[in-house]
Design a protein around this nucleic acid. Structure first.
Lengths: 142, 142
DNA sequence: CTGAGTGCAAACTTTTTGCACAATA
DNA sequence: TATTGTGCAAAAAGTTTGCACTCAG
């Protein structure tokens, strides 16, 4: 995971962007936090790595990372904007616990709806799927 | 569709809520607009039906309708909160055009991921699926 | 007539922008 | 050194809340 962060920093540099301590911190925060984290959490984690990271910089850095294809926005249905490393490669979905709000990654993708879209004259190029329910820890409420 | 609105108003009344001209207007706006509309659009449409509807009332009414199971929130990945009539019954997904932003309803649901969730110790009780791409009118960009 | 519902204004939350300063390449 | 990136403060945008007034039941 640390090597991966360096690779991404190189990618930024190659794209003509500058590598700063703040960006490194945001990237490391993303790498350590796992998927679908909101901006506040990313900011807090980044601060633990490098105290001089402002919230504004986190917003701007995330936008830059998305632009470079290093990170992506994730929308889960609550009102928070979330981000995670990786783009379409490493495609996955999320299991969102309705009880504790935890989010875990689901790598399988049994999706057969592309055809359905095409039947509507719609060309499906991407999709987003969230499974909502209760995680093993919480269990289903009575 | 007009009968359906009256039925929903009755449902509100039975639940001890009051039926006002504003609520009727919001409900009619939802019925006429189709699925996944944002609050601003609902407000504008409601105003055309009954000019004395404030934005705040639209927010509060939508919340009440969701609480009564008459309407539901829809999250599509842009930053807007959207609403539409109907709840889990009438389950459907959306085809979101990346070019014009139009949203159309997809009634089919070929979802086989519930099993996948269960394998993770996760009990799936609901899911959300958006297919992104290009509608027939827009076509796929070069 | 009594409490649920409404409108307005103000408060809040989240995200964006302007501008002077700092630091990378 | 030439810019890109940063921080702060302020502005926007979207949503919620307090309060007095209105109206459905």
């Amino acid at each position: 995971m640390p090597g991966r962060v360096d690779d991404m920093l190189d990618q930024l540099r190659s794209a003509g962007r500058r590598v700063t301590a703040q960006r490194r911190a945001v990237l490391q925060a993303l790498a350590r936090l796992g998927c679908a984290q909101d901006v506040e959490a990313i900011h807090a984690r980044a601060r633990r790595i490098h105290p001089r990271v402002g919230l504004v910089t986190v917003y701007r850095t995330l936008e830059a990372l998305v632009g470079e294809g290093v990170a992506q926005r994730v929308v889960l249905g609550d009102d928070r904007t979330r981000y995670e490393l990786g783009q379409e490669h490493g495609h996955h979905h999320h299991l969102v616990c309705l009880s504790c709000g935890s989010v875990q990654r689901l790598d399988e993708c049994h999706l057969e709806s592309k055809r359905a879209g095409r039947r509507h004259g719609f060309t499906v190029t991407a999709h987003r799927l969230e499974l909502l329910g209760y995680c093993a820890k919480c269990g289903v409420p009575a």
